[in-house]
Each structure stands twice: as structure tokens, then as C-alpha cells.
Design a protein around this nucleic acid. Structure first.
Lengths: 141, 141
DNA sequence: GTACATGCAAATTGTTTGCAAGTAT
DNA sequence: ATACTTGCAAACAATTTGCATGTAC
């Protein structure tokens, strides 16, 4: 991903282009991942010491409102991710990693709800257990 | 539900029977519902003024650990419910109500994950949108 | 020039902790 | 008798707010 594409995304969604937003985007849009505000803030602060936590909060909120990111809550904190498709996030109680699980059927089930008696605008599916790696490792013994 | 059944539940799960726990159970096990610690605390405090928020937190944690309740996070707070089956909670952005949605297939999908490459110990499915009532009302116009 | 974004400090909200005193078993 | 539970106050973590200054468009 290039800065040009980030700038395009901001323009497309009606957000102004600022160095702070580009800094955040370089971290959270570079590759699939899960991010906490505090962590991203600390990473950016190294090269841009004037940035504040409140600004990073603002940026995450703006990007989520515009559909660039998706958020979910886990253990008292908000996480952000660039995978905006309906999917499950599995939090591994062994290694701490968060793993995306694509479950195409779930997207369809939720779609079906929206065609029925409900209106569904967002879905957060958070699982706790063991990721694929830890499941394999611990059942191997 | 009777106090006797609550006492039984506590004994069965290895929790001691205390007046504070019974007070909480009378509220959260009486009928299907969704509860925040703070709200339950305030309701109990009327008749038992010595109870503290920390105690109510303790009780919810103990009951959830024992599988009597289930929890999920929504808009920065933890909610508890007595429906311990896998289901979705839909938070209505119009009326504020939280509605249970039973989706039998989802339980099976998650079961399937657990039989596959993952180990799933808990699942939290939180939807935002419009509840059945508000969906009907707003599409009627 | 105007509306939007940032930086900063302080406030707020939800939750946890440590510990002494009390109580269930 | 012992381990668990409660009450209380204080601490903590995550997030939000208000406002002056700064910047994108």
C-alpha cells in the first residue's frame, strides 16, 4: 500500500489529509492485523513526538465511522482491524494472539436477519479459546 | 424462580450462599434479560444500603466463571445475561434495547470450528442495528 | 476564510486492588 | 477453624471532553 492510496481513501471518504492520519494508516492498513489505540500511538510517537493519544482516538473513530476500519471490544479495550468483512476474531488464551476466522455462512446468516425482522448495521463476533497454532500444538502432546 | 433454587445453584457450583448473592440472583435470574453491574448495584442498594459496587462486581465475576451467567461487551461496558446458550445480542440504535436473537446454525458453526483447527471456549456475538419492534415501526412509514 | 483537525490537560467512566473485618460451611 | 466473602477506599485503565491553536482545502 502506498501513501497515494491512503490519500485517495481519505479523499474518497471526505476526510482531510493530515500527516497524523497517514501515520496511522501506514500502520493499520499495511497488512492484515489487529490494533489497539495505545499501541499505535506509541509506535507513531517515536517519529512524531507531538502526536497525542486523543488524536489517535479521533483518527480511529473517524476511520471506523467511514468504514475504513472495523472495531470490536475484547477484555475491556477496543481493537481495530482493517478486515471489514463479517468474520470472527478468536482471542487465543494461550499465546494472546488474535486470529481472524472467515466463516462465510455467518455473513449470510446475518444478511438473512436483515432481510427478516431485524436491521443489522454491524456485527462483532469475538471468540475466546485457542488459535489454530496453539490448538495443534497442545493436542499434539 | 425461588430462593431455594438459587441456593441450590450456588451450592452446586461451589459458591457460598450469601444475602448479597441472593439479591443479585433475584434480579438477574428472574426472567430473561441483560444487565449492567452498575444498574443491578443501584437496585439492590435501595434495600441493602451496605452493599458495594465492588461486591456486585465480585458476584458477577464468580457467577460468570461458574457458567451461571454469560457476559459480553458493548459500547465500553460489560453486560451480563442469563441466556448462556450461544446466541446473538442485538443492540437497538433506535430504542436502546438489547434483543436476544437465537440463531441455531451459529451454535453449530462454532461447534464445527471447535472440531476443526480451533478451540472455542466462549463466543460473543454483538450486533448493532434496529430491534424487531423498531424495524417494523420504521419500515411501516 | 472556514470548517475541520490537532495538542494538551483535565475529567469521566468502568473496573480492579489491597486489606481488615465479617460470615458460611 | 478455615477459606471465602464483603465493605471500603484508593488506584487504575481506557476513553472522552473542552478549548485554544493550527492546518487542509
Amino acid at each position: 500500500m502506498t501513501d497515494q492510496s491512503y490519500i485517495q481513501t481519505l479523499r474518497d471518504t471526505g476526510l482531510k489529509v493530515t500527516p497524523q492520519r497517514l501515520s496511522v494508516m501506514r500502520i493499520v492498513l499495511e497488512k492484515p492485523g489487529h490494533f489497539k489505540v495505545e499501541d499505535v500511538y506509541r509506535r507513531i510517537k517515536v517519529s512524531e513526538p507531538t502526536i497525542t493519544l486523543a488524536t489517535v482516538y479521533n483518527i480511529f473513530k473517524a476511520m471506523t465511522d467511514k468504514g475504513i476500519l472495523k472495531s470490536f471490544e475484547l477484555d475491556g479495550a477496543t481493537w481495530f482491524e482493517n478486515n471489514t468483512e463479517v468474520h470472527a476474531n478468536l482471542s487465543c488464551e494461550n499465546c494472546g494472539k488474535i486470529e481472524d476466522i472467515e466463516i462465510p455462512e455467518i455473513g449470510q446468516l446475518i444478511q438473512k436477519l436483515s432481510n427478516g425482522n431485524y436491521t443489522v448495521r454491524s456485527a462483532s463476533i469475538v471468540l475466546k479459546g485457542l488459535c489454530s497454532e496453539c490448538t495443534a500444538e497442545l493436542s499434539a502432546k
